[in-house]
């Protein structure tokens, strides 16, 4: 049990470093998603199912979705130049 916990915790730190240091933003966010998922597993192990459900829905779900939508927005430059010149 404790080994599993330590592994998961180490994975968390690894994910955090990878998502911060990674070059590609898309992969950073995918790693962030798995970070949230691991976090929710940990909270389940800590006997807080309320938190686990919320984190799974909010962290891995909604926040990551918002990140992806933002990435999609900021890479889609199309039509922006026109806006500014008018």
């Amino acid at each position: 049990m404790i080994v599993l916990e330590v592994l998961l915790l180490a994975f968390l730190v690894f994910c955090a470093l990878a998502t911060v240091l990674g070059k590609k933003m898309v992969s950073s966010i995918i790693i962030f998603m798995s970070y949230s998922a691991v976090m929710s597993i940990l909270w389940f192990l800590l006997e807080s199912p309320d938190l686990a459900i919320t984190e799974a829905a909010v962290g891995a779900g909604v926040t990551s979705l918002l990140f992806f939508l933002t990435l999609r927005k900021i890479n889609a430059v199309k039509g922006m130049e026109k806006d500014e010149e008018s």
Binding site: A16, T19, V20, M25, S28, I29, F32, Y35, S36, M39, L42, W43, L46, S48, L51, E55, G59, T63, F67, T70, L71, I74
Partner: peptide, 22 residues
């Protein structure tokens, strides 16, 4: 974008701290 990820890391870290305290 990385800054925002950092913000989330920071917040979840405090949450982990609190949750494990309980």
């Amino acid at each position: 974008i990385k800054k925002i990820i950092g913000l989330n890391l920071m917040d979840t870290a405090v949450f982990l701290f609190l949750a494990s305290m309980g």
